[in-house]
Design a protein around this nucleic acid. Structure first.
Length: 292
DNA sequence: GTTCGCACCTGAGCGC
DNA sequence: TGCGCTCAGGTGCGAA
């Protein structure tokens, strides 16, 4: 599934293939895909027609394309890929994907941009841009914290905030208001690398432990970004989180029953927030004061 | 204000 | 073969 590194690959693809192009028409094939655009599909399509896509940006798992034209800009096409979303650059002659939700045609008659999403957890919306803490952001994601790839990401500040929380470390890592871009997979990997159990209370974490887990999250996402950078070619913006990297490099996530790469103990899977948490019972012992 | 649980959604995988 | 159940998971909302 698309995680921060895959979203960054998509951002690069958009930057290369749609920046500078003028939108001719937009077709919404499934209204749920633009459910966060409150005025609805007709307004969405009408406001995009004639606009120029300028530059692609990203924060955490959100990405957006700044728009020019019509009313002079100050607005962005915001996208979240959810669990199964893809933004594909396809020739207009290509057969429609089974789960094609939104189609963007360009005035130059070149390849079109398609939003494809099987589970419809993702979506597109138009959002005004505003300066938030020194960065131009779509207003609707002003609450999303900086991600570890952000040059202005402040690990010390994140750890200070983390230690003020009264919850489990994994739950905190998944809170996009605290640190963005970390999903279930990278949370498990970061905790395995820093030898912390997922239910470790954040308020019992030392500063060093906090910095270690944030550094591990940064490191694992950087490695994934390097591995994911190959899934893109000239006409196809491939957003496939299951490609390459995950099968080869994951130490904890999805490895139930497999030997831990450090100590050989079988990785275990625990129910966590209606999903799963994977950990090594020896390297990451469950604390007595665990918080689920 | 903070924390937690749940709905949303679709298809794959599994057991019967 | 076909049916029904479970699981996957990011986000936002409502409840506590």
């Amino acid at each position: 599934m698309p995680e921060l590194p895959e979203v960054e690959v998509v951002r690069l693809g958009l930057e290369n293939h749609v920046a500078g192009r003028v939108i001719e028409a937009v077709e919404v094939l499934h209204p749920r895909a633009i459910r966060r655009h409150i005025p609805g599909p007709l307004d969405f399509a009408a406001r995009l027609a004639g606009r120029t896509m300028i530059a692609a940006r990203r924060r955490g798992k959100y990405l957006w394309v700044e728009l020019a034209g019509a009313d002079g800009g100050g607005e962005a096409l915001l996208a979240h890929l959810g669990m199964s979303g893809q933004l594909l650059v396809q020739p207009s002659t290509a057969v429609d994907e089974k789960h094609l939700r939104v189609r963007v045609r360009f005035a130059d008659g070149g390849p079109e941009l398609r939003f494809v999403d099987q589970r419809t957890f993702g979506g597109l919306a138009l959002s005004d841009l505003a300066e938030v803490d020194g960065t131009l952001l779509p207003l609707s994601i002003a609450h999303i914290a900086r991600d570890p790839m952000d040059p202005r990401f402040d690990a010390e500040a994140v750890v200070r905030a983390l230690r003020l929380r009264h919850t489990g470390i994994k739950r905190a890592l998944l809170d996009q208001n605290l640190i963005s871009g970390v999903g279930n997979i990278y949370a498990d990997e970061a905790l395995w690398r820093s030898r912390l159990h997922w239910a470790r209370p954040t308020d019992r974490l030392s500063r060093a432990q906090g910095l270690a887990v944030v550094a591990a999250a940064t490191e694992v996402m950087r490695e994934a970004l390097l591995a994911g950078g190959t899934s893109f070619d000239a006409l196809y913006v491939n957003v496939n989180g299951q490609s390459g990297y995950f099968d080869r490099s994951l130490a904890a996530y999805g490895q139930e029953g497999e030997p831990c790469q450090r100590c050989g103990t079988a990785i275990r899977r625990d129910p966590f927030m209606n999903r799963s948490a994977y950990s090594c019972p020896r390297c990451q012992p469950r604390p007595r004061d665990a918080r689920p």
